[in-house]
Computed example of a mutant assay.
Amino acid sequence: MKKKKSSAPPGPRPKKRRRHRRGPGILISLLCLVLICAAILAAVTVFFKVKRVTVSGESRYSSEEVLEAAGIAEGENLFFLNKVAITNRIFRDRPYLDTVSIRRKFPDTVEIVLQDCVPSAVVSFENRYWLVDKKGKILEEISQEQTAGYCLVTGLELEDPQVGEYLDFSQQEQGKALSIILNTAENSGILKEIMGIDMTKLFEIRLQYTERFVVELGTVEELEKKISFLNQVVERLGSTDTGVIDLTDPQTARFRPQ
């Protein structure tokens, strides 16, 4: 007899996954987001307008002169103010300024904070005289008579000096050396005693120190140590001594009376 094939009972049918249809919820959410952004933009545009501009800080310029250079119009939007453009306009028209900070004060005020440059020396070039700060920024062109009381720098080669710009040197090493001298002398408290700097030769820099001494500096190598030697020599000399102080050797100082 033939055996009947036994068949296993059929298992449960796999459930079909239902496809979830995206309803209008996402569109509504996007629409709400757009409306919220539009409302915020409208509020910023309508409510945050400039009504007052203040000027603070130490400066030779009056508030009116600074506001004229800034060019901020009443009613401009506080958020959309171009602070970089405003700062550049002020620097261009008011060269004595060292720092300019533009601050927004909500809901309707702009504050301009200023700090002036401090004149450090006068650079002589081609019979013209340029008043500069210790960073080499040209503050103004002055006459020869106005150079009295400033350290007069000679022997430099410049490229098209312009008020409000920084000194551009034909020999970049001259610029580096001048910066080192002005900054180190100021930090050491002797810049006001230096009447002149001759930088015709970078390896034979000479200073006129008060009316009594010519200082043979040589190079700016180890300048802080050289200035320390200079102070020691001056302290040991009498009030009427004059002569040459040789600082070309960073390890010692020599005095030659005249």
Rank of each mutant, 00 (worst) to 15 (best):
W130E: 01
V122F: 04
I138G: 03
E141R: 08
E126Q: 14
D198K: 06
L202C: 10
G149T: 08
P161S: 04
N127K: 14
Y166C: 08
T147G: 06
K134S: 07
K134C: 01
L152G: 05
N187T: 02
P119L: 02
Q208I: 08
C117H: 12
N127T: 01
V163F: 04
G136W: 01
G136A: 01
P161Y: 01
E186V: 00
E126Y: 02
F203G: 15
L182D: 12
E157P: 01
E173S: 15
G175R: 05
Y166D: 04
E211Y: 13
Q115M: 14
R128W: 00
T210P: 06
E165Q: 10
Q162L: 12
A177F: 14
D160S: 10
Q146T: 00
E145C: 01
I142A: 08
K176I: 15
C117M: 13
S124P: 02
K192F: 08
G164D: 05
L182S: 07
L139M: 04
E186N: 10
E211P: 02
C151M: 05
L202T: 06
I190Q: 08
R212H: 05
E159F: 08
E141H: 01
T147F: 02
V123L: 03
D198P: 02
K135L: 10
L191I: 00
V153A: 05
I190F: 04
V118T: 09
E186S: 13
I205W: 13
G175Q: 09
E211M: 09
R206M: 08
I205H: 12
K176Q: 15
T200C: 02
N183I: 07
N127D: 13
F125W: 14
S170P: 00
G164M: 02
E186R: 08
G155N: 05
Y150M: 03
E186Q: 12
